[in-house]
Design a protein around this nucleic acid. Structure first.
Lengths: 129, 129
DNA sequence: CCTTGACTTGGATCGCGCTCGAAGGGCGAC
DNA sequence: GTCGCCCTTCGAGCGCGATCCAAGTCAAGG
């Protein structure tokens, strides 16, 4: 069952997002989806564009180091509705700061690695003279 | 036994590096040290400044996502001596590129998170008017 | 019909990187 | 001496995040 107008199969979503079908089911079971994708007549998942957008965002949260548990917390708040927007924003702000720190740390580490590379470079020059 | 001139206890190294004493022993067993720290008369490890510098660098490698196995490979090359500098440099260059990519990805993710935060911000403004 | 193949659920298993605990040695302070 | 503390080795256990397996359903094609 391909495409079916505005719904995607799990294989299609896997292809689109880079996640495995296994991972997509796992995330759903773990409560990371904002809403459970409805099942078709055959019991197969039918992802909407909305689902896809959500998965893309949760992938960013995961990719920046947010734990499954914390993403679930965020997803729960989304499910809980409008009244939770302040807390959601706070979660993102806190996470945002962690990511910014992580970037700074990585830059620093990168500089240290580059310094080492430079030493090897100079070692080569020396032997070529 | 504190300090003892130019050697450090495992507890001191742990304090300096932020690693646990457990982790330091684990790294050593896993072959991540450039050279095994010598033992004192009581069998206790005595780390040199050289060891400390190495641990700091390996911490950067680990912190930037290099696996234990890959750090071990690098450490093995260091132990193998001068003839391996070209390969060592190559490992660092390859890793360096991965780290740079990771930073770019994180920046991109950060922008997406900031975008979301902005949406919450605007939502608040709307309700305050 | 019967196979093929994508999907379903539930639970077991895995890899990584530590982390912890047990059992014991050595040494200084009281 | 014996208490307390830091160290030793060895091996078991843990948390996380998937990943994989088993058994089954369903639909389409030959």
């Amino acid at each position: 069952m391909i495409g079916m107008s505005q719904s995607l199969t799990i294989a299609e979503v896997a292809a689109e997002t880079g996640l495995s079908a296994h991972a997509l089911r796992y995330y759903e079971k773990a409560g990371l989806m904002r809403e459970t994708p409805p099942r078709g007549g055959n019991g197969h998942r039918r992802y909407t564009e909305r689902d896809l957008a959500w998965i893309r965002f949760l992938t960013r949260l995961r990719g920046t180091g947010m734990s499954i548990a914390d993403v679930r917390r965020y997803a729960e708040l989304v499910r809980a509705g409008e009244s939770t927007t302040a807390e959601r924003k706070q979660i993102l702000l806190t996470h945002r700061e962690e990511v910014a720190k992580r970037i700074d740390q990585l830059k620093d580490d990168l500089a240290a690695i580059d310094y080492k590379i430079d030493i090897y470079e100079k070692l080569e020059e020396k032997y070529q003279l």
